[in-house]
Amino acid sequence: FFFAHSSSCSVMVWPVLVCIALLLKPLVRGFSGEIVFGQSSPFSGVSGDVGPRLQAGVLAGFKEANDAGGCHGKKLVLHSVDDGYIPTNMPDKAAELLAIPDMFAFIGFYGSATTAALLPTLIQHQIPDIAPLTGSSSFRRQFNPYTIHLRAGYDDESLTMLNFLISEKVVGRIALLYQNDTFGAPAKEGIVSALEELGMKLVCLQSYSVVDDDVASHNFTRTAEKFLAHSPQAVILYAVGTWVTATIAEMKRLAEDQGITYITGSWMGLTLSSRLKASRIDPKGVYVMQTF
């Protein structure tokens, strides 16, 4: 099981701030006493443990910059709001942040569906969205000058997952659970396509919707039973929060000692270790990708 500590989030802040300072130097100098950034992330809901960690990483980077004199003498300030990882909340949350005087840029946003819902606001107000925590290919295949990516896309991440499973773990029977939206659907298509090129296909495919499916009442036993009926050697989870941990927990309970490999992506790197520990789930055979 591989895990990157959440404090590493602060590492990503410095290169961005340096680029902003160099490219937008006249604009930065035009601000009064502070350079204001806005963050909308989940501080509640199915991914409610992600927002505070992203916030902590950004604030750590800002503190380092401010202790060194700020950016051209200006103090970096962060305002955070809770969107609950609900895409329909994004217009109101963006408006709330934009109402703050001297809002310079967005930073520390989380999720593909939420980022997609934010795009019209970015374009309308011409405000940068720095380092959103999403690798969705839909944001990379069509250029958007207001979104500044600092991480690899899910296409690259998916291929690395498959290479790990097929070449290193030597498994051939792979199943997939994915979130059916702009986050998981493109990843599913990429995984299916990559397997087809190798003459392989998924043994089982299941999906869910964060809009229509209630995680609190979802029957994870049924999900686990459906997967296990196809005897997978590995399960890829393009899912978030409880959808990941509850699926793994129930499959481990029912499968006992079948040696199934579970792998999820970098978006779970901030919280998966603590979630497994809190749920008393044996981490053996559970892997999480990391992108640098």
Rank of each mutant, 00 (worst) to 15 (best):
R253P: 03
F220P: 03
V286S: 04
P101V: 05
G199T: 04
L24Y: 13
A234F: 03
Y154P: 00
S137H: 05
I166L: 09
F106P: 02
V286D: 04
F164T: 02
A116D: 00
L162P: 01
F1V: 14
S7L: 12
A216C: 03
A175Q: 10
L195F: 00
G153Y: 08
D257S: 07
P15A: 03
T147Y: 04
R29I: 04
E189P: 00
A60Q: 02
V171W: 00
G45V: 06
D129V: 05
R280K: 15
S273M: 13
D212P: 08
L17Q: 12
T221R: 14
G285R: 01
A278C: 07
S7T: 01
S217W: 03
R151W: 10
L119V: 15
Y238D: 15
A113D: 14
P87I: 02
S266I: 02
T264H: 03
Q233F: 07
G73N: 08
Q206D: 03
V13T: 07
L17N: 11
L78S: 00
E197Q: 11
D129W: 02
W243Q: 13
M251I: 15
K284Y: 01
E34S: 10
M103R: 04
T264L: 02
K75A: 11
S137L: 14
E64H: 06
G184V: 01
D129P: 05
I174R: 03
S112D: 10
G38F: 10
K188L: 09
P283R: 08
S266H: 05
I260F: 05
V286Q: 03
L205W: 06
M251V: 07
T115W: 05
E196M: 09
V50A: 13
W267I: 15
A117M: 10
A246E: 15
S40K: 05
T264C: 14
I123Y: 15
V211S: 14
R173A: 14
F106K: 09
K201I: 03
G172P: 00
I281L: 04
L270H: 07
A99N: 12
K284E: 12
R29C: 10
G48R: 06
V81L: 06
F227M: 12
V11T: 10
G45K: 01
A216L: 13
K284R: 08
G61I: 07
K75R: 14
L162A: 05
I281F: 08
R253S: 10
K169I: 05
I166R: 04
V203N: 02
I174N: 06
N144E: 12
N163M: 03
L59K: 13
G61A: 04
D129C: 15
A105V: 04
C9L: 11
G184W: 01
T160H: 12
M12Y: 13
F104I: 06
S279M: 13
D83L: 02
A278G: 06
S158Q: 09
I86C: 01
G241Y: 09
Y287K: 01
K226C: 13
V211T: 11
L54A: 02
E256N: 12
V235K: 10
A229H: 08
K201A: 10
V36T: 06
N180P: 01
A116M: 13
K277A: 15
V58S: 02
T221H: 06
S47Q: 08
Y154S: 07
K188Y: 12
A116H: 09
R141I: 14
S193M: 00
A60C: 10
H125M: 07
D129L: 15
C204M: 14
